[in-house]
Amino acid sequence: MNQADCQFEIVSNEDDLRALEHEWDDLWSRAHGQYGQSFSVCWLAWQHVAKPRGRRLCCIVHRENGRVAMVWPLVTYRRLLWTYLCPLSPEAGDYTRVLMADSPNSSALIAGAWRTALTRCGADFIKLPYVDEGSDLHAVASRERHVMIAARTVAAFAKLRDETEWDAFCKTLGTMSGKKPGALERRLSKEGQLAVRVTEPGDARENAVLVDWILARKRAWGDRVGKRGEWLDSSHYRDFLVNLLCPANGRAMGRLFVVTLDGAPVAATVVGVGTTCVDGLIASFDDRYARFGPGSIVVEHVIKWAFEQRLNVDFGVGAERFKAYWSRNNITGAWSAQIANSRWGVFAFRSKKTVRAAARRMARLSGVSGGQRRGASAFVPDNHDNPDSVRGLDLPMNPS
């Protein structure tokens, strides 16, 4: 291990991770961190998702003059004979980002953290969901020799912090499906007593009920459109969302917005709140009211709330029309990848491709449809050889 590698510490113990809280919070504030980069959110992800699923901590930390200057929270897990390294997160299609303040040495530090991940975490595969295209992390990871899977999608980001007047901002948007902001809400209000509100962070019962409501309708929507990520059925992810809204320490990093008609929910969304930005996490609506656009109504209120708080809005990945509309077509790229990091990993991936190719040939020769392909994919631990399976974790917000 050379001197540069010694500058990076790997935290693999829960108590040591907890001991970083105050330094982590300080860095998060200095770096204008996003919701998912905060210690509170990462700790919840560890306690309610990663730890119950048997993950192991592998958090990379860099210090400068004794002060924490970089944190990259990662975990490893075993699947059959292979070890995977992935971000510490709720595992629901979240971004992969390294927390650090802007510095002339940023590129070198990212390169050092990446080298540490490759050489000291013992992984056969490295999984990177949704890395910001053009970032230092994207640059260093995309240069790897054994990038086995690479898939690009788009994301939208609404820059609101420099706006000063809501009505003036809305005028710059034009219309979406022929409707201006506020029109759908006025239309739905004719059907009954309409209310839009943010739930109280301390109301654990209501927040839990509404989280269950969102997940149930999101599962039904996923079945209809063929985008059913496993996290939708995960009790771990459900518990993460509930605790995000009602944390034990009283510092809620999430907010839940709900639209009700005559007291019953018709749309709701959970968002994460960072230092300068609101992140869309998950949303759904009652399909019986789809023609009124209740999902669009709740999103509009999230954006207006963020506007009033002087926060930007990150809509997450996905090319839905409403994201381009509210972001005024401020569209960026996000890159997901799986990288083989050992000879054993390369062998496994190539063997899987060979088996699947053979299965396709056999299917063609026998006249059988491609339905047999799934059986062949069990050779390698994770079924992520198809870029679409990576993108299948998208749509953190899906209004009508």
Rank of each mutant, 00 (worst) to 15 (best):
K127N: 03
V299K: 09
L88A: 08
V298E: 14
A50D: 02
R186G: 05
D26W: 08
A340R: 03
I303V: 13
G178L: 03
A150M: 14
D167N: 07
L256M: 11
A117F: 01
M397E: 11
F169S: 01
V368R: 09
A155M: 09
S29N: 11
P381C: 08
E185V: 01
A141N: 10
P52T: 07
E163R: 05
L244I: 00
A359D: 06
L44R: 14
R364S: 15
V380S: 06
H301L: 10
N329T: 04
G333M: 04
A101N: 13
T269D: 05
A248Q: 13
L128N: 13
D167L: 05
M148R: 14
V211G: 03
I303T: 10
I110H: 12
H384L: 15
R161D: 08
M176V: 15
S103W: 11
G367P: 10
A150C: 12
R217P: 00
T276R: 08
L245Y: 07
R18G: 06
G316F: 09
A363D: 05
Y130W: 15
V242R: 15
R321F: 00
M253T: 05
S389K: 15
I110V: 09
R364A: 06
W305V: 00
Y325K: 10
T116F: 11
D388S: 10
A363S: 14
W82E: 12
K353F: 07
A150V: 02
R288A: 15
S12G: 09
G274C: 02
R56L: 04
T83A: 04
T269I: 07
G134W: 07
T175D: 08
N341A: 13
P399M: 02
S29P: 01
G333W: 00
W82F: 04
T116Y: 15
S142Q: 14
I303F: 11
S106T: 12
T275I: 10
L393I: 08
S351N: 02
T332E: 04
R55S: 02
A283Q: 08
V41W: 00
D286Q: 06
G122R: 13
R224N: 11
E9G: 01
E64L: 10
Q338Y: 02
F307P: 13
A183H: 15
D94T: 09
A156P: 06
